[in-house]
Amino acid sequence: MAHGHNSNEKVVYVGDTRVKKGKGFQTPPDYTSFPGKSEAFIPNFLLKEWMVGCVVLVGFLVWTIAEPPPLGYPADPTNAAFIPMPDWYFLFLYQFLKYPYVSQDYVLLGTMGIPAIMFGALLLAPFLDTGKERRFYRRPIASSLMLVTLAACVYLTVVSWDHYQHMLEKNGQIPEHHEREERVREAIEEGKPRPNFMKKAAAVIEPDDPAATIAQEAQCLGCHAADLSGSAGPALIGVGARLSKEEIAETITHGRNNGAMPAYEGQLSTEEIDQLATWLSKQTQE
């Protein structure tokens, strides 16, 4: 070794390189300097760690078997009734941006201002909190800022989730992945094949029926779409398989869902409603 570790030499190199050995590195404390009973990482500690890991893994597997991962209906860009919802760990930000002074005219403050300050402070925490003290109760400013932020994030997440549940209830919707699971389960129980959700909606039956003109003139198609596949309102394809003619006539006459489906009593004559209901009850597509 040309450059050994002879302390008489002026310059000490690292190994066989030309890298000069520096003096600045703060060597971490030797483990003999820690009090108490330390143990070897391999194999003693790692074996115990693996046992805990196995228990976690088995628990996780049981969870994935018991709870199928959610899957809704295929993405439909024309679906106006769907309530957008990010994954749960983004909800705090999503809810935050709904408040005045951080949205609309002030959206800059909401997207850039406050989140940039918060995430920036978190990123640079070691350079903001430079004291030597490590115990949290001796660092009241850093600790209380973190606790307040935590509480705020939890609060925003809960409010956002509550709002979502409320919206679902108000619109009379259930989350699509629940609905889909339920439909599959029912089909299987009835001995039918699994429904194919990729299938295009079936065509309208008797599209030349005079009732089709009534539907257009009464603005039904504004919500239920020209091909009756639904947009703001539900699809009417297959409605005849779900509802009787009388039930359809009742819905047209008196509306549904607090006027989400308006009442047409007075706007359409009883004969027209009867014609419409007759035509719709023929829409028995699968």
Binding site: F82, P84, T111
Partner: peptide, 20 residues
């Protein structure tokens, strides 16, 4: 690529797009 995926991404990118 279900509705939840589609609309969450749409909203997410719209939020990002509001950055000046």
């Amino acid at each position: 690529w279900d509705n939840k995926a589609y609309y969450a991404t749409k909203v997410g990118v719209e939020i990002a797009a509001s950055v000046p």
